[in-house]
Amino acid sequence: MWVSLKLAVVTTVALIVLAAPTAYLLAYTRFPGKTFVEALVNLPLALPPTVLGFYLLMVMGPKRPIGQGWEWLTGDALLFTFAGIAAAAVIYSIPFAVQPMKAAFQKIDRRLIESAYVLGLSPFKAFIRVILPNSLSGITASAILVFLHSLGAFGVLLMVGGSIPGETRVASIAIYEAVESMNYRDAGIMSLSFIPVCYLFLLLINRLNRD
């Protein structure tokens, strides 16, 4: 359960930071091949998790550039570690972060941004001072979706992380394994613990939204 929560928090924070510029580009700029980029961003939504997991497994292996690069940087392997499943969860949840943010950015009146430019703000400052504060609901929606989606991730994580206790064994995998070994009591306790956690999280988000 701890691993699950840690994973969900890390994924959410990382994705909000990563998705904001991506959503900005998709919402405000035009460039050749944009539809292709947009489809690519949405691809993790369409692919079966095991397929996505398989490719991530291939790419993150110790003999591949990404796996090697990571090992060179941190001295640790990427596969079957927490960092590995975090990376996988981030990629798995990209569309859930980008889409609501993009929609929120597009809803902002173009004249507000122009007004900020005329008032002397650079595009980056206008993004921080005008666009972000006016799309908080979209960003919150992104955070909820990503958090819950990575809390429930199963297939992708199993492919790249396996089930190492305390490292990559997230709750959904632990529940599955408990059921496999007929240990219904543990599976029940773990499943039950999801309900208050998810419920509290939703209450918190509601509260944030109201403020």
Binding site: D109, R111, A116, Y117, V118, P133, N134
Partner: peptide, 18 residues
């Protein structure tokens, strides 16, 4: 627009709502 340093009042709805 940033470098021109002007004031521009639009027809309506251009105050920052937040």
């Amino acid at each position: 627009p940033q470098k021109r340093r002007l004031g521009y009042v639009f027809q309506e709805y251009t105050l920052f709502p937040h």
